[in-house]
Design a protein around this nucleic acid. Structure first.
Lengths: 168, 168
DNA sequence: CTGAACTTTCAGTACTTATTGAAAATAAAA
DNA sequence: TTTTATTTTCAATAAGTACTGAAAGTTCAG
């Protein structure tokens, strides 16, 4: 199997993983393609390689730029825009993780807090049981949220993980 | 706001969270409903509360049973099946996490290994760069996979997390 | 300016996933 | 065994999500 085939396999696998975790397949594939490309790529090159439309390519690139995990690269003497991927996984993965946490987890934690607030004074058995159920989930989530922040929201994540491996 | 409304808010929030993370909304809502219910519930009660069809209710319950995060409960003198939720979040959340890891992450790790194997002997700059890209992702993933296993695939997860909070 | 090169937008369409409801299957009671 | 209650299945349909392609918008060289 040649390198080109391996790259294609990587791109396909990455697209499938993305789909399963709520990231658009094309978006994931474009990132994968840029990750394994040695040169900056233009929209047309991406369209051709992935066999996707201009609209799709453009939207996917925009999204990845919004995420902050790819960059524009000016190529001298060429009017087209070129793109390169952030290659440091500790940068791009952490960025995705933090964004999704903020967008999808934090609002849930907020609702859990509200629910506890709303029901903490209820004295019925039913009310107390509900409070406990919500509280359990809230505490569980906060514990992981804390751990995630410590690992991700610092630039010492890699070191921390290596230390954990030693002590645990 | 009364308890019933709070329960509904919990169910809705849970359904939305599920959708965002690849778990069918109805499945998530049924689990939420059982989590906040003081008694075992029948299919009919679930259909009525969540306003979903019999087919949907039945499929959702079956899936939750497959996941192992709800149980059947026999009610004396009643022919219908009743259901209760596993209330221990350290049991059910860990189960979901491990199942998804196994189904969706592990195969990707396997492909990453294959890709490294396929390309490790390539001597071109391009080949070496690809190997490094894949290797970075592979190592990153393995580090988290290890941490996850230590926290989840043991029954001391809660203790571990508390210790981490102290030492980190 | 003007026109060519390039990018963005978005209505229409295709594809995927979720849901319904009724028929078939199963299980218990009469 | 027959009847009745209950569960399961699944074809049809709805809802949600992704993708296309062409038109509109933008930018820049001449």
């Amino acid at each position: 199997m040649d390198l080109q085939a391996s790259k294609q396999k990587f791109i396909d696998t990455w697209g499938a993983l993305g789909s399963e975790w709520g990231i658009n397949k094309s978006v994931a594939q474009v990132q994968a393609l840029l990750l394994v490309s040695t040169q900056p790529l233009s929209t047309d090159e991406i369209m051709e390689t992935l066999k996707i439309s201009r609209g799709n390519a453009n939207m996917s690139l925009r999204q990845l730029l919004d995420y902050g995990i790819i960059y524009k690269k000016v190529v001298a003497g060429d009017r087209k825009e070129y793109f390169i991927a952030e290659k440091d996984i500790w940068k791009w993965a952490v960025r995705i993780a933090m964004m999704r946490k903020q967008k999808e987890i934090d609002p849930v934690v907020h609702v859990l807090k509200e629910l506890k607030e709303e029901t903490k004074k209820i004295k019925t058995a039913d009310g107390k049981e509900f409070y406990k159920t919500v509280d359990d989930i809230h505490q569980f989530t906060e514990q992981f949220s804390n751990l995630a922040d410590k690992i991700f929201a610092s630039n010492r994540g890699e070191l921390l993980l290596k230390l954990l491996k030693i002590v645990m």
